[in-house]
Amino acid sequence: MRAHAFWKGVRDAVPLLGGYIPVGMSFGLIAVQAGFNVWIAVVMSLVIYAGASQFLFVAMLTSGAPLWLVIVMTLLINARHVVYGPNIAPWLTSSRWWPWMMHGLTDQIFALAHVRLPQMPEQERLGWFAGAALLAWISWIAGTAFGGIAGAELTQRWPMLESVLPFALPAMFLVLLTPRFTSRLWAVTLITTMLVAAILALAGIKNSAIPLGALCGALLFYVLKSTTRFEEVKYG
């Protein structure tokens, strides 16, 4: 693993801190308020490491839902992750470390890796991924610990931080997605996907919005592709 590639990954993942730390803090705070010990919240962030499903896990346990249902719902929310690994597989080397690295394959790391891995030499990819995934993981765990220990006081003192820093996530997705607008076909597909996902999120089904929006977008891509009108026009 190359040290400079590792640090390049760390540098690329720095914008994630703006989203991971405040949301991790919210999770730590909510878990403690729900009656969990801080260290249990930290262990959950350490081993489950999937934001939305952790919130659901705590909420369902607190409401007295049966454990099997809590586990099934957690895994259903995380089911969208099944398409992430295969999508970046062509750019992964033969190292045996890769399957273990997949613990760090969150939504944001996937989006980052999907764009960055193809741009770098093969020998740098493992180090880069390790650096980016490790920083994101540590920030999520640290955010949870902070939130559990001092979340209430911190959000009371700086209420703006909690509402402003998470904008780093849409800003990052925007930067990663913009170069994909290479043709009219992709532009229509991606804009429609965004709108469908946003509308579903506004309708209150935020967890299903990502896979459903992506599926609608993929279907639209194939429908449009079958009409010759959309095949010709390409941007710069």
Partner: peptide, 30 residues
């Protein structure tokens, strides 16, 4: 390797990122 991944999967990758963007653009407090 890139050419050998199923076509539907290479379409689903960018649309997943677009969906993530769409969801994350919705503010917590509107």
């Amino acid at each position: 390797a890139v050419e050998n991944i199923p076509a539907w999967l290479s379409v689903l990758g960018p649309t997943m990122i677009a969906a993530l963007l769409g969801v994350s653009l919705v503010p917590g407090h509107i």
